[in-house]
Amino acid sequence: MTRPSRIEAVLFDFDGTLCDTESRNIDLVRGILNRMGCPVTDEELFSLSGGDDRVTVPPLLERYGSSYTIDDYEAERDGCYRTYAEADLALEPGARELIEDLRARGVAVGLVSTTVARCILTALDRLRILGLFDVVVCGDMVSRRKPDPEPYLRALELLGAEASAAVAFEDSTPGTAAAVASGCHTIAYNQLALDQDQSAADEVIDSFVGLSL
């Protein structure tokens, strides 16, 4: 799919796209799963990126014969909140400039994440960029998370934009699948991607610096 000739909205994933939270979250999750008797491999950890924990984690617990449940895991992980509240976060180079340019041109800008709102809003506030988004859709604001297209369709609905006139930036396999299924022109950002299949994307980039839409 070629880029829309007229762009009404641009939607961004957060983790691994706008900000390098994924590597920190992976380290935190590795420690939790190890304590639960799951000596997971890097491949297994990377497969969790961008997905719904209640779908992806139970098979891991079962595979390793862990006595812990998904509820135990979620209570311990707490949405990886420590990453968003305490880690040294920074936007990817060129991301702020791209978003500010879009807003100056009257293009609606949204953020679409599988991560829960408590974490995302904390990070956006710490980065001083919450006001740059016209809409924020998080994982606990929808009934079906990525790879289902619902989060993207919800953001488009709130913005009053058509998917045929929208661009989405993603990094993960589930996120890319969700954006593509929503009908958005999908650009995969691979600078931070952790062993993700981005082949379904319409474009792949490795930097936001100098990018113009």
Rank of each mutant, 00 (worst) to 15 (best):
L18H: 00
D20G: 05
N34D: 14
L18F: 02
E43Y: 06
G37V: 11
V29G: 01
V40C: 14
G16L: 00
L28A: 09
E22W: 10
L18A: 01
D13C: 01
T21C: 06
D13L: 07
C19K: 01
L18Y: 01
R24W: 07
M36W: 06
G37A: 10
C19A: 12
G31R: 13
P39L: 11
C38E: 03
R24V: 12
S23R: 15
L33T: 07
D13S: 05
D15K: 02
I32N: 04
T17P: 03
N25Q: 15
P39R: 10
C19G: 02
R35S: 15
V40H: 06
L18W: 02
C38H: 04
D20S: 09
S23C: 09
D20M: 04
D20F: 02
I26T: 14
L11F: 04
N34M: 08
L28K: 07
V40M: 09
R24E: 07
R30I: 11
G31V: 12
L33N: 02
D27H: 09
D27I: 05
T21G: 05
I32E: 04
L18Q: 01
L11I: 08
L28N: 12
G31L: 11
D42S: 13
T17D: 02
D27K: 14
D20P: 05
D15Y: 02
S23D: 09
C38N: 05
E43T: 14
R30S: 13
C38T: 07
F14V: 03
T17C: 04
E43D: 15
T41L: 08
V40L: 14
